[in-house]
Design a protein around this nucleic acid. Sequence first.
DNA 1: TATTTGTATTTTGTATACAACATTTTTCCC
DNA 2: GGGAAAAATGTTGTATACAAAATACAAATA
Lengths: 227, 227
Amino acid sequence: MVQMDGMVDEIISLAPIEKQTLHDQVASQLRDLIIEGVLEPGSRIDETALVDRLGVSRTPFREALRTLAAEGLVMIRPSKGTVVRRLQREEVYSMLEVLAEIERLGGRLACERAKPAEISELLNIHDRMIALYEARDRLPYYKLNQLFHSRVAEVSRNATLIEVQANIQSRLKRIRFVGNHKPKDWADAVADHEEMAKALRAGDGPRLGDVMAKHLMRTWDRVEDSL
Amino acid sequence: MVQMDGMVDEIISLAPIEKQTLHDQVASQLRDLIIEGVLEPGSRIDETALVDRLGVSRTPFREALRTLAAEGLVMIRPSKGTVVRRLQREEVYSMLEVLAEIERLGGRLACERAKPAEISELLNIHDRMIALYEARDRLPYYKLNQLFHSRVAEVSRNATLIEVQANIQSRLKRIRFVGNHKPKDWADAVADHEEMAKALRAGDGPRLGDVMAKHLMRTWDRVEDSL
DNA sequence: TATTTGTATTTTGTATACAACATTTTTCCC
DNA sequence: GGGAAAAATGTTGTATACAAAATACAAATA
């Protein structure tokens, strides 16, 4: 019997049984719609229309809205409907200011705590980013870029940092995505990333942290006029 | 008419018309119950019982739960009920590690951006804290302490920082409240606060930030064994 | 006695129904 | 025609009802 269990474990590989409730699915969908800009900042969220379109009832839909509200993506005004939060300049700046310090810490801890294999993985992502830059392949570059920053946070092995980083990054996603893209800006960003790779290879945490923080404050200059 | 409005403004002082929906009230109540420890970490939240006790229906109650889940106070396990999140040692450490950097930034910005009146207010809170320490009046001291840190965040005028600080502080509230209180620890904490006041008076942002960060990392030592 | 299997009960998830509120349109009066 | 009051419409908030799980319990079998 014990032996059989062992066999089963090995064969079926013990799937993590992710149960997806409706409100979780709705929350994901809404998040995507907001980030992609289908639901525009400042616009009211038409409950009945969306409920209809998604084919769910209002109950799970509204629960999803509460989640997004707590994440800062929408604003619920009691009795007056929910609107997609429009970010003011000030708010975006405040996010970058905080994110800079979060990633500074993340970079430092990553160097202290990452296993060699994880460092390689990060450098691998970096290399692929460079290749995509050289091909001027914007969208995949953008996605890998996000991944790089998330992975640095992850190997810092600080659960709170991971969470906060993910939250702020998600709120900024849209802004950064639609922001105007001058070739020079892109080149500068890539240069920053080369510096990060260098610091990573040297295992120099404080340096990596500094570069990442500086990188984010420069991001402000890059997105500023698109606000 | 315009004149009358002006009068009304002055007299009624233009209250922000806080409309409180049921789920907001429920969320606050639950937050308090969790922080006060009435709902113990790890315990399941009995929906029917609490709904009964609060005298509301399940709909607003469940919406409130989703909010608390997004805030990290509870965990919703699909189909298996909601439990009050129990913080592992690691998580608490990770929160303090992040909070330290958040408050380091907050302290620095506060000195740069606070108006003189706001500095005075902070120093005033500090003085009252000292008085309470001398009277060994724990609870009010504890509350003023929270207020001090929140106010520093507020005068930093960074909305994201304020939000993140509040969120982490709220999650840690219980831990810090029940943590064992050696007289020496308290004295040390007060010494830190004296340093903060000094930095504040000198308008030395970097220094204030450093002290606050150090203070929080020392908090770890103070709460560590109660976990 | 221990384990399993089937059944009952409780609890959770979702849909619907109703009530309260906000908004828009219409009506009425000046 | 302009503006205020009132009715109609739509939208949001809350309660309840039903369906689908999960859990607890009991009987049956080895």
